Computed example of a mutant assay.
Amino acid sequence: MTDCIFCRIVAGEIPAKLILETENVVAFHDLNPVAPQHALVIPRRHIATLDDATDEDRELLGQLMLAGAEAARLLGCAENGYRTVMNCKESGGQSVYHIHLHVLGGRPFSWPPG
């Protein structure tokens, strides 16, 4: 997906402040943070939305969640707590159509969100 900004980050065409990399997942600092600690965790393989994931993506989705927890530890917000969010499509708040997990920390969050 040459027009996908996250695919271009994975390919090294666009720089990002990386937090962690695995064979299948990359985590980096969000350019427009909404919390003191705000990371994005993405699969290296392009999947546009959560609705586009298939049964074959189960392990990859689990890897995203585990990488989110590791990113929170590396950011120093795991001990006090953090929030993970995955938006799906326009009404769900998705702005980049490459699935990504937001890891937010460093401040208290309220419920319900939004």
Rank of each mutant, 00 (worst) to 15 (best):
M1W: 12
T2C: 09
D3Y: 07
C4A: 14
F6L: 12
F6M: 09
C7R: 07
C7I: 04
I9F: 14
V10C: 10
A11V: 10
G12L: 11
G12V: 09
G12R: 04
E13G: 12
I14N: 04
I14S: 06
P15R: 03
A16N: 04
K17C: 10
T22A: 03
T22Y: 11
T22D: 13
T22V: 04
N24R: 15
V25A: 07
V26K: 12
A27Q: 06
A27L: 04
H29I: 12
D30Q: 07
L31Y: 05
N32Q: 13
N32C: 05
N32R: 09
P33S: 04
P33R: 02
V34W: 00
V34Q: 14
A35Q: 04
A35W: 01
P36L: 01
P36E: 06
P36F: 04
Q37Y: 07
Q37C: 11
H38N: 07
A39R: 00
A39F: 02
L40Q: 02
V41W: 00
P43S: 02
R45I: 09
R45S: 13
H46F: 03
A48L: 01
A48E: 14
A48W: 02
A48F: 02
A48D: 13
T49W: 03
L50Y: 05
L50A: 12
L50K: 03
L50S: 08
D51P: 00
D51N: 13
D52C: 02
D52T: 06
A53W: 05
A53P: 11
T54Y: 00
D55I: 07
D55N: 11
D57A: 03
D57Y: 01
D57H: 05
E59H: 13
L61E: 07
L61D: 07
G62A: 10
G62M: 06
G62Q: 10
Q63E: 15
Q63P: 10
M65F: 11
M65I: 14
M65C: 10
A67D: 10
A67S: 15
A67W: 02
A69H: 15
A69C: 11
A69Q: 15
E70S: 14
E70D: 15
E70F: 04
A71R: 06
A71H: 09
A71S: 13
A72D: 15
A72I: 06
L74S: 14
L75Y: 06
L75D: 12
G76N: 12
A78V: 06
E79H: 11
G81R: 03
R83T: 07
R83P: 10
T84H: 03
T84E: 09
T84K: 00
M86H: 04
M86C: 13
M86D: 05
N87L: 02
N87F: 03
N87W: 03
C88L: 06
C88G: 09
C88N: 15
C88K: 05
K89Y: 09
E90R: 13
E90S: 11
S91Q: 14
G92K: 01
G92V: 04
G93Q: 05
G93V: 08
G93I: 09
Q94W: 03
Q94K: 02
S95M: 14
S95T: 15
V96K: 03
Y97P: 13
H98V: 01
H98W: 06
I99Q: 08
I99T: 08
H100D: 03
V103C: 10
V103K: 05
G105L: 01
G105D: 07
G106H: 00
R107H: 13
P108A: 03
W111A: 12
P112W: 02
P112E: 00
P113I: 00
G114I: 06
G114N: 10
G114Q: 09
